Amino acid sequence: METKTVGQKILYFPLTKIIIGLIVCIGTLVILKLGIEKLLGLFNLEKTTITLLSNTLSIFIVLFSYTTLYQYYEKRSITELSSKNLAKNLSLGIALGVGLQSLTIFVIYLYGGFSIISVNSFIPLIPSLIGFTAVAVFEEIVFRGIIFRITEEKLGSYIAMVISGLLFGFAHLFNPNSSITSALSIAIEAGLLFGAAYIYTRNLWFPIAMHFAWNFTQSNIFGAATSGSIIGKSLFTTKIEGSVLLTGGDFGPEASIQVIVFCVITTVILMKLNHKQNKVIKPYWSK
Rank of each mutant, 00 (worst) to 15 (best):
E2L: 15
E2Q: 15
T5Y: 00
T5A: 06
G7F: 01
I10G: 01
I10N: 01
L11F: 08
I18N: 01
V24E: 12
I26R: 02
T28W: 04
T28Q: 07
V30G: 01
V30Y: 03
G35H: 08
L45H: 04
T48G: 09
N55M: 09
L57P: 12
L57F: 11
F64A: 15
S65P: 07
T67A: 14
Y72W: 10
Y73Q: 06
R76Q: 14
E80W: 02
S83N: 00
S83W: 00
L86W: 05
N89V: 13
L90M: 14
L92I: 12
L92N: 09
L92T: 11
L100C: 13
S102R: 07
L103W: 00
Y109T: 15
G112K: 06
S118N: 14
S118R: 11
V119Y: 08
S121W: 01
L125C: 15
P127E: 06
L129C: 11
G131I: 05
V137N: 01
V137A: 02
E153F: 05
K154I: 07
Y158I: 11
S164D: 07
L166K: 04
F168K: 02
G169L: 08
F170P: 04
F170V: 10
L173K: 07
L173E: 04
F174T: 14
N177D: 06
I188E: 04
I188H: 10
Y198M: 07
T201P: 09
R202K: 14
R202F: 00
R202P: 03
N203D: 01
A209S: 13
A213Y: 10
Q218C: 15
S227I: 10
G232M: 10
S243I: 14
L245Y: 06
T247V: 07
D250F: 13
D250R: 15
I260D: 00
F262N: 12
V268H: 01
L270F: 15
L270H: 09
N274E: 03
N274M: 12
Y284I: 15
Y284C: 13
K287Q: 00
